[in-house]
């Protein structure tokens, strides 16, 4: 599990990615920091427009015009990735870090066999010859649980089911034993029984290779199931970060709390779902202060100033490892302002 003293496999500092549209600059990712360690899974959770997918695409440098990474630092085992030339970085992609995507239906090239597409990765990075690559393809397809890999390798993507295609994507991504796997909504397009298979597979492969995994999802269930560390994103920022148990047992940020209380669960009855009022502010009307303030039930004067992501200053229930939260409530300033709302009430999510 989490080993604190390891240097992180991936270290992202103050990442900023913007889209330059006719309506002006849209800061899709605005100052994001996180780390992922060996054998550890970081879950990034957020709703649409939170910037979670753009964050993962930024790490892979797959942002296309009019988008651009405009600031920050991304390190893979100490290697500064943003300093690499395009050609240098292409040698890392699919080799030292790889990615699987949400839509297994459209993420494979329809005109090549799946065997060809998996082989391409090892041919590029491991400089394997045709026969050797073929052996490797069969080995990988077997590893990800594809039945009859010899004949499946000759199939075209449209001949496979969604779950099988995602397995092929995983085989492709893991063929070069990357240090980091990024999974962007890997099971969102799949049925739940297939989702369970795929999540299980990723976990099993992580255990055997020790790779770091970054999983991006909107589904808190998937997060609880797979992640060790969690970052909650809202409007381009990380608003809360903690290990998975701390986050679920004691969500601090009002947004995290709202999110958790608004999921209808299949194992518990709730009469009225809690709702987060309003919608995510559009980039043009992004508040200069706390970005969640308009929708926050606790918003106060001080929330017009932008809060930073920090460990909660006021000790909560004796927990020392409470992660970090971007909210004024957990700062000395909040207490000093004499706000009527006490921390304890917020923590109960009342």
């Amino acid at each position: 599990m989490t080993t604190k003293d390891h240097t992180p496999v991936l270290k992202v500092e103050n990442l900023q990615t913007s889209f330059f549209t006719y309506d002006g600059e849209v800061k899709a990712v605005d100052g994001v920091d996180f780390e992922v360690r060996e054998n550890e899974t970081l879950g990034i959770v957020g709703e649409s427009g939170s910037g979670k997918s753009i964050t993962s695409l930024s790490v892979m440098q797959l942002i296309q015009s009019p988008g651009e990474i405009i600031g920050g630092k991304i390190e893979l085992n100490g290697d500064d990735l943003l300093q690499k030339s395009k050609a240098q970085f292409a040698k890392y992609r699919g080799n030292r870090l790889s990615m699987i995507f949400q839509e297994p239906m459209t993420s494979l090239n329809p005109v090549f066999t799946v065997g060809h597409q998996v082989a391409e990765t090892v041919k590029i990075h491991k400089k394997m010859g045709k026969r050797e690559a073929h052996q490797e393809v069969i080995r990988m397809l077997k590893l990800v649980g594809i039945p009859a890999p010899e004949s499946r390798a000759k199939s075209y993507p449209h001949e496979l089911s969604g779950g099988m295609r995602q397995r092929v994507m995983i085989a492709m991504a893991l063929a070069c034993e990357p240090e980091l796997l990024i999974a962007d909504e890997p099971t969102t397009a799949l049925d739940v029984t297939i989702q369970a298979q795929i999540l299980e597979l990723i976990k099993r492969l992580q255990e055997s290779t020790g790779m770091a995994v970054m999983i991006i999802t909107h589904d808190l269930g998937v997060i609880a199931e797979t992640a060790d560390q969690v970052a909650v994103m809202y409007a381009g920022e990380v608003v809360e970060q903690a290990d998975v148990k701390t986050l679920f047992n004691r969500p601090l940020h009002p947004y995290t709390q709202g999110l958790m209380n608004s999921i209808p669960r299949h194992d518990v009855d709730v009469d009225e779902l809690e709702v987060i009022r309003g919608t995510v502010p559009s980039p043009a009307e992004m508040p200069s202060g706390c970005r969640f303030a308009q929708r926050c039930p606790y918003a106060s004067e001080i929330c017009n100033t932008h809060p930073s992501l920090a460990a909660p200053s006021n000790n909560i229930d004796g927990h020392t490892d409470a992660g970090a939260v971007r909210c004024w409530i957990y700062t000395d300033e909040w207490d000093a302002e004499g706000n009527p709302m006490k921390n304890e009430e917020v923590q109960q999510g009342s």
Binding site: T193, A196, G221, V244, K245, H266
Partner: peptide, 19 residues
């Protein structure tokens, strides 16, 4: 089907059958 759904509670992990 019920056991395949991930529960948003890390303490309840993995009481599941994968069909």
């Amino acid at each position: 089907l019920l056991s395949a759904i991930p529960v948003p509670d890390p303490d309840e992990k993995s009481e599941r059958i994968v069909i």
